[in-house]
Structures are given as structure tokens and as C-alpha cells.
């Protein structure tokens, strides 16, 4: 851990990382169970499937899923990006890139649901790709939290540098 000011937040951050993994895992399970995990399954889920007596999704049904996700996903991403960026676990450009990728995948995933339903079934692979990308970025952020906050064997020798480093960061 580079910054000694972060030490008190080790347990909260690691608990948050664990819940992030649970969220990603439960989202993957739901995607597989409800949407089939493939473009064909996504098409059947949103456009209906006569063989299974499934109706196309209504606008109300799409909004019921989209609205909570439009609030919850950015909130989770904001929190984890904020903590990882504060800890300077990544170079600034890489952190900005990963954040943009995460928010972009989340937005594309929500938009693709409406796209498949109202624009065309050709957008089903976009929904699968956006979901997969969001899952990967969530796991990447959880891993970064782990990298920052898990106790490292080499932490003690590095501790000598931390006071000066922290002073520099405050001065910035």
C-alpha cells in the first residue's frame, strides 16, 4: 500500500471488492439463466419466442430493469474508480481508460436492450459483448482493489518511502 493514509480503509475496501465479485457473479448467472448467454437467447428474451409462449418485452418491462441499473452501476463504478484512483493503483491514463471502458460498456449494455427490441435483432451480439466487457471491467476493478489493499509481503521495506510520498501527494 503506497499511501499510509489508506491503511484504515483496508477492510472496507476489501469487503467492497468481495461484494463487487458477488455482483458480477450474480449478474453472469442471471444473464445465463434469463437471456441464455448467447445472441440467439438475447433475441428470444427481448423479441419473444413463440415456441416458449414468451411475449416480446414491453417498454415498461425494459424500463423496470434499465432504471435501477442506470443508477446502481454508475454509483458502484464511481465508488470503485474513486478509491482506486485515489490510491494511484494505475497510471492516470490507464485508470481513465479503464473507467471510460467500464462506463461505456454499462451504457452500451442498457442501450442494447432497447436496441434489440426496437431497432433490430442484429444488435443482440452488441448486448452480449457489452455485458461481457462490463463483467471483465468489474472484475478488473475488484482485482485492483485487492492489489492496493491486500497485505503485501514487501510492504514493510516500502513503508520508509510512504511518508514522503504522502506529503508529496498532499502538496499536489
Amino acid at each position: 500500500m503506497r499511501d499510509p493514509r489508506l491503511a484504515p480503509f483496508r477492510v472496507p475496501a476489501l469487503a467492497f471488492a468481495a461484494f463487487l465479485v458477488v455482483q458480477a457473479a450474480s449478474a453472469a448467472a442471471l444473464f445465463a439463466l434469463k437471456l441464455g448467454g448467447s445472441p440467439a437467447g438475447v433475441r428470444a428474451f427481448y423479441l419473444g419466442d413463440a415456441a416458449r409462449f414468451a411475449a416480446p418485452k414491453s417498454l415498461a418491462g425494459l424500463l423496470e430493469v434499465a432504471v435501477p441499473h442506470l443508477a446502481a452501476i454508475p454509483l458502484v463504478l464511481f465508488a470503485v474508480v474513486h478509491v482506486v484512483s485515489f490510491a494511484r493503483a494505475l497510471p492516470a491514463r490507464a485508470a481513465r481508460g479503464l473507467a471510460a471502458l467500464s462506463f461505456g460498456a454499462a451504457l452500451a449494455g442498457v442501450a442494447a436492450s432497447f436496441g434489440v427490441r426496437y431497432l433490430g435483432p442484429a444488435l443482440a451480439p452488441v448486448k452480449v459483448a457489452a455485458f461481457g466487457l462490463l463483467e471483465l471491467t468489474l472484475l478488473a476493478w475488484a482485482a485492483l482493489l485487492g492489489a492496493v489493499f491486500l497485505p503485501a509481503r514487501a510492504e514493510e521495506p516500502a513503508r520508509a518511502d510512504t511518508a514522503a510520498g504522502a506529503a508529496e501527494e498532499i502538496a499536489e
Binding site: 455482483q23 442471471l30 454509483l75
Partner: peptide, 25 residues
Amino acid sequence: TAAALWEEVHVGAFVYGFVLFMLAA
């Protein structure tokens, strides 16, 4: 159904995870 069980986990992980993170911090 299994989907209903996972939905409960999905929503619960957000509520518990976020509230616990804030309270613990």
C-alpha cells in the same frame, strides 16, 4: 426459480455491499 434466487443475491449484494462499504469507511 434459480433466476429468482440469483436476483435476490444481485439486489442484496448491491444494498449490503454499498451500505457496508460506507459504514465501514
